[in-house]
Design a protein around this nucleic acid. Structure first.
Lengths: 168, 168
DNA sequence: TATTGTTATACTCTATAACTATA
DNA sequence: TATAGTTATAGAGTATAACAATA
C-alpha cells in the first residue's frame, strides 16, 4: 500500500525531486513563521515591513516605489499601504523623484536604519538557530550557490508587472 | 564604499551565509507567489487550502484538526475557518473521532482527491519551470538532502502550541 | 498612450479570547 | 485541569479598478 491518494501522472518528476520541493517549502514556511514571531515581539513590524526597510538599508537608502514593489510585495497598492504605515512611524520618507516626476523616491530615515540595526541581531539569531545550525559550512555554501541560481532564474522571468490585463 | 547602511555586528555570520539565507527566502517567495497565481487561476483555491488537501491526499485521507494545524496553518481557529470553506465546497468532511471524542477527523472526499489530481500537473509544471529547470539532478539531490535536514531540525523545535501564554 | 503612484473599496485571512465538551 | 475544536470579533493585509499626473 502506497498510503497516498494522489497520482502525479506518468510524466511527473522523480519523487525525489518533489521531495526536495516539499522539504524546501515546508522548511522555509516554518522559518518565516518564526521570523515573523520574533519581529513582532521585538518591534511590532511585519516581515513585509522589515523587508522593505532592509531592502532600503542594504543599498544606499533610496528606491522608487516600483523598485520596492518588485522586490518585496506584489501590488503597488499594497506597497502604498505599507509605505504609509512606515512613513507614519517615521521610518521612511517619500518624496518626488528628480529624474522622473511620476516616480516617488522612498528614503529610509535615521530612525529606520537604527531600527533595522537593532532588530538584525535577533533576526539573525533566529536564522542561525533554525537554518544554519543543522548545516555544515559546505552545506551552506552549496545551498547559497543553488538558491542564488534559482533566484536569478526566477528574476529573469517576466515580472509581475507584465501580467496581461484582464481580457475585456 | 560598501553601499550598505546596515552593520550586522561583530559576532555576525559570514556574509556568504547571510547571502544563502537571502537567496533562499527570495527565491521561495517568488516561487510561492507564482504557485499562488496558478492555483487561483485553475481552481480558486489558495495555497493554504491546496496544502490542506494535499496533506490529506498524500496520506490515507484522514487527519485530525490538530494534526492539520501543525502542518499547514498556524492557529486552530484559522484552520477551522479554512476547513469550513473546504467543507462547504464539498472537498472535505468533518466528523467525530472514535478514539478521542474531543477530536474532529477531517476526511478528504472523492471530489477533493479528484481536484488535487486535476491541479497537480499544472502545479508541478510551475515548480518545474521555476525551480527544477535551472538545477542539475545533482543540485536537486543536494537541495533535497539539505532542506530535509533543516526541516527535520525545525520540526524538532518546540511546536507553536507550546508557546507560553501571554504574561499576566 | 503608457507608466507611476494613490485612493476607495471589498474581501480574505488571521489571531485572540471566550466558550463547550471531553480526557 | 488540560486539551480539541468552534465561534465571535476585530484588525491587518491584499487586490482590483478608477483616477490623476507625468513621460
Amino acid at each position: 500500500m502506497s498510503g497516498s491518494l494522489v497520482d502525479p501522472g506518468i510524466d511527473s518528476p522523480e519523487p525525489e525531486q518533489l521531495a526536495a520541493y516539499f522539504a524546501l517549502t515546508e522548511a522555509v514556511s516554518l522559518l518565516q513563521h518564526q521570523v515573523e514571531l520574533q519581529l513582532r515581539a521585538d518591534s511590532g513590524l511585519s516581515s513585509v515591513q522589515f523587508g522593505i526597510l532592509t531592502r532600503l538599508a542594504g543599498g544606499d537608502g533610496q528606491l522608487t516605489m516600483t523598485q520596492l514593489a518588485d522586490g518585496v510585495v506584489y501590488s503597488r497598492s499594497g506597497l502604498t499601504y505599507q509605505a504609509g504605515l512606515l512613513e507614519k512611524a517615521g521610518l521612511i520618507t517619500r518624496g518626488p523623484s528628480v529624474d522622473d516626476e511620476r516616480s516617488t523616491v522612498v528614503t529610509i530615515t535615521g530612525k529606520g536604519v537604527a531600527l533595522v540595526n537593532r532588530l538584525l541581531p535577533g533576526h539573525i539569531e533566529v536564522v542561525r538557530r533554525l537554518l544554519f545550525e543543522p548545516l555544515s559550512d559546505r552545506d551552506l555554501r552549496r545551498l547559497g550557490d543553488i538558491m542564488s541560481r534559482v533566484r536569478d532564474h526566477m528574476r529573469r522571468q517576466p515580472p509581475r508587472s507584465a501580467t496581461p490585463r484582464k481580457r475585456r
